[in-house]
Amino acid sequence: MSFINYLSREINCKIVYYGPGLCGKTTNLQYIYNKTNPEAKGKMISLATDTDRTLFFDFLPLALGEIRGFKTRFHLYTVPGQVFYDASRKLILKGVDGVVFVADSQIARAEANQESLENLRTNLAEQQLDLDEVPYVIQYNKRDMPSIMSVEELRAMLNPTRVPDFEAVAVNGDGVFDTLKAVAKLVLTELKRGTPK
């Protein structure tokens, strides 16, 4: 649910990074944080366990610039990927304007990707949202790992509707901003269309 403030001439949108445990959601946000000018970003918050696994969410506020005098601000969130944190994932999805599904390209994580994507669809449906109608992109992360699936295989498995998808190595930043720009653009285009209804 975007928030339009006519007084401060701001538009705020919420983007959620979703995906299986250890796929690189937090790494995406960390890279964006490290590479963004200080004036365009706020503090990054990570609610993590002692072993640096996401417990509740990571949060990064980002200003992308102005459109016709309106400042566009994006709040980026990650969900905890581990299966048993499902209740937290549902909470973070509330009011989402755009979704990035971060898939782990490694062959061994194929099933985890599918489960997580199915979980995303189910959790969105609980708040009357259809993944096929929400601004949504996919990132195939960890392209530098040795035992990975081909992009064609990943696409066939995870992207039957052919939403915009990107290869990435989030630790090096490859594909990170391409993914962010694509989802931000879809969110703004959706707002332009005059939703929500």
């Binding site: 649910m1 975007s2 928030f3 339009i4 403030n5 006519y6 007084l7 509330k94 009011g95 708040q127 009357q128 949202l129 939703t195 929500p196 209804k197």
Partner: peptide
């Protein structure tokens, strides 16, 4: 969309 968009206008903001 499930929840309506929040829009803030000058009158209500004041």
């Amino acid at each position: 969309m499930a929840s309506p968009q929040m829009v803030m206008y000058e009158e209500e903001f004041n």
